[in-house]
Structure formats: structure tokens, C-alpha cells
């Protein structure tokens, strides 16, 4: 596609990015997860700043590429992707809509703020089963299918589920 005659607003760009799914959890977008930190025009260059969730998350480079492709598909050629690690990504940045979408997808959203992030000997949070709504659940493992999730099990409906841990 050729370059556009007029520059789209940053609000437009945010709107496009709301349609870019997270590669691991396609129910939520990269905006819902708070991965996109900034969209800004610097002269004729559109600068998009993203922040990695976990430092080793293999999805990070894939996400940057997906964002880049989504923007280029709208006809913007002069694009610069930047990575920012500070302030560090936190689950507090996951939007309310994102939390609801996670729940619908079968992943329990983070409980409490990032302050309830793990620390030795802290009491695990009470996590609600995303299927039956019971709080009668137990942690199977602090680690799960991706770096951001822990493995839980519901003691009422007996279903295993993922918990997006506070971070």
C-alpha cells in the first residue's frame, strides 16, 4: 500500500492496535494487556513503544512484529518500534475489559495489585474459578503454560484452569 496523504491520529492508531491479538492469549489484545505504552508522531515518523511482559517471554518479538504489520497494513511506512523496560510491565496495566475477556476465555485474571506479587512465604491469593465462580480453588503450581500464568484447580467444579498471576 502506498503512503497516506494525511497522518492518522494517534487515537486511530490505538484503535487499530486494539485489534491486534496477543499471540498466546488471542482473546485479549496487546492494548488490553498494557503492552503498548506509547504511540507518538515524531515528525513524519510514527513511534510505537512496547514493553515486554516477562523478560524471556518468546511472544515479545512476535508481538512487536504483529504490531508493525498491523500498522504497515494501514499504509504507514515510516514506523519505528521501541522497547522500554522501565517502568517494568505490571498486571495492573491490564484493562478492565481485558480482565473480563480473560475470564471469558477461561483464565482467571490477576487478583490484587502488583504489590501482591510473589514473595517468599506470602499467602497465595484467593483465586475465583473462571468457569463456575467458586472461590474454593487451590494452586497446583506457581508456574504454568506461559511465564505469566500459574496452574490452579477448582475444588467445586473440579476443572483445572490457568491463573494470570499478579506481577
Amino acid at each position: 500500500m502506498s503512503a497516506l496523504a494525511t497522518k492518522p491520529s494517534t487515537d486511530d492508531v490505538w484503535g487499530w492496535l486494539e485489534e491486534v491479538p496477543d499471540p498466546e492469549i488471542p482473546a485479549v489484545s496487546v492494548v488490553d494487556l498494557g503492552i503498548v505504552r506509547d504511540v507518538e508522531w515524531k515528525g513524519g515518523t510514527l513511534v510505537v513503544t512496547v514493553t515486554p511482559t516477562y523478560s524471556g517471554c518468546p511472544a515479545t518479538s512476535f508481538i512487536s512484529r504483529a504490531i508493525e504489520m498491523a500498522i504497515r497494513a494501514r499504509g504507514i511506512d515510516d514506523l519505528k518500534m521501541e522497547t522500554r523496560i522501565s517502568p517494568a510491565w505490571t498486571t495492573d496495566w491490564i484493562s478492565d475489559a481485558g480482565r473480563e475477556k480473560l475470564r471469558e476465555f477461561g483464565i482467571a485474571p490477576p487478583v490484587g495489585g502488583a504489590a501482591s506479587c510473589a514473595g517468599a512465604l506470602k499467602v497465595p491469593p484467593v483465586v475465583t474459578c473462571p468457569r463456575c465462580g467458586s472461590t474454593h480453588t487451590e494452586r497446583v503450581s506457581q508456574f504454568g503454560s506461559t511465564p505469566c500464568k500459574a496452574s490452579y484447580r477448582c475444588l467445586d467444579c473440579l476443572e483445572p484452569f490457568d491463573y494470570f498471576k499478579s506481577f
Binding site: 515486554p52 516477562y54 523478560s55 523496560i85 522501565s86 517502568p87 517494568a88 505490571t90 502488583a114 506479587c117 510473589a118 514473595g119 517468599a120 512465604l121 506470602k122 506457581q142 508456574f143 511465564p147 498471576k165 506481577f167
Partner: peptide, 20 residues
């Protein structure tokens, strides 16, 4: 150094919780 540590320490708090 401060920003690398800020990013890493959150991950390592989960490592320590598990190994402890």
C-alpha cells in the same frame, strides 16, 4: 542497572517463592 534490576526482581521473587 536499575531498570534491568527492576524488571528482573519481579520474576526472581517467583523463583524464590518456589525454591523456598
Amino acid at each position: 542497572i536499575a531498570e534491568i534490576a527492576e524488571k528482573s526482581v519481579k520474576e526472581v521473587s517467583y523463583h524464590l517463592e518456589r525454591s523456598h
